[in-house]
C-alpha cells in the first residue's frame, strides 16, 4: 500500500489537505481483495434463520402454555379426558422415522439414482401424512370425550400448540410432495439442489420440534 506524492495540490474547495499519517492511513493491511468464500451457502443460511424465527414463534406458544399451566390450581384440571400418551408415543416414532427417510434422500442421489431419491422423499412424506392421520383420529376421539377448544385452559393449550405443529407438518408434507415432483421432473440434475436441501432442513426442524412438544404437553 503506497502513500500519495509529496506535492499536495489544493482541493476544489480551496483547502490544502493535511499531510498523510506516517503509517499511511487505511484500516488495515491491504492486499488486493479477492472474492470471498462464504461459510454457509445461501440456502443453508436462510433455512437456519427461518428456523430461528420459527423457534421464536413456538417459543411464544410454549411459554404461554407454560404460564397457564404453572398458574393453574391443578394440572391436568379435573374432569378432563386423559391424553392418548401411548398412541402418540408410537406416532412420535413414526415421525422420527420420516426424518431418517428424508436424510437418506440425499442430494448425492440426484445424479446417481433419482428414482430412489423420489421414493425416499415420498416415504418421508407418507410417514408424515400417517402421523397427521393418527393425530387427527385421536383428536376426533378426544372431542368425542368432551375435550374441545372451549374446554378451558387445558383444551385451549392442547389444541393450539399441537395444532400449530400439525399445521407445520401439513406444510412440510406439501413441500416434500412438491420437491418429490420436481425431482421426478429432473429439476435437480444440473446441481441446483438448494430447494431439496431446504426442504430437508425444514422437515428435520418440524420433526425435531415434536418430541419437545410431546414431552411438555403429553408427558410432564
Amino acid at each position: 500500500m503506497t502513500t500519495v506524492t509529496v506535492e499536495r495540490p489544493r482541493r476544489a474547495n480551496g483547502h490544502v489537505p493535511p499531510p498523510p499519517p506516517p503509517t499511511g492511513g487505511g484500516d488495515g493491511p491491504d492486499r488486493e481483495p479477492g472474492p470471498r468464500r462464504p461459510l454457509l451457502d445461501n440456502v443453508r443460511l436462510a433455512m437456519l434463520f427461518l428456523i430461528c424465527g420459527e423457534v421464536m414463534f413456538f417459543g411464544g406458544l410454549i411459554s404461554a402454555f407454560l404460564v397457564l399451566r404453572v398458574t393453574a390450581a391443578q394440572w391436568p384440571p379435573p374432569l378432563q379426558p386423559r391424553l392418548p400418551v401411548g398412541v402418540t408415543g408410537v406416532n412420535t416414532l413414526v415421525l422420527l422415522a420420516s426424518s431418517v427417510a428424508i436424510a437418506a434422500a440425499s442430494p448425492a442421489l440426484v445424479q446417481r439414482d433419482p428414482g430412489t431419491l423420489v421414493r425416499r422423499l415420498l416415504l418421508a412424506g407418507g410417514l408424515g401424512a400417517a402421523f397427521l392421520l393418527v393425530q387427527g383420529y385421536e383428536w376426533i376421539r378426544l372431542v368425542g370425550y368432551g375435550l374441545t377448544v372451549g374446554s378451558g385452559a387445558y383444551g385451549t393449550t392442547f389444541y393450539t400448540v399441537i395444532g400449530t405443529h400439525a399445521a407445520h407438518v401439513v406444510a412440510a408434507v406439501v413441500w416434500v410432495g412438491v420437491t418429490a415432483w420436481l425431482a421426478a421432473c429432473g429439476r435437480f440434475v444440473d446441481g441446483q439442489t438448494g430447494a431439496l436441501r431446504a426442504c430437508a432442513i425444514y422437515w428435520h426442524f418440524v420433526v425435531a420440534l415434536w418430541p419437545i412438544l410431546y414431552v411438555a404437553v403429553y408427558l410432564v
Binding site: T148, G150, G155
Partner: peptide
C-alpha cells in the same frame, strides 16, 4: 372460544 387471555375459561 379458546381461553388464552379470557379469565372466564382459565386464561390470563
Amino acid at each position: 372460544g379458546t381461553s388464552w387471555f379470557r379469565p372466564s375459561g382459565g386464561g390470563e
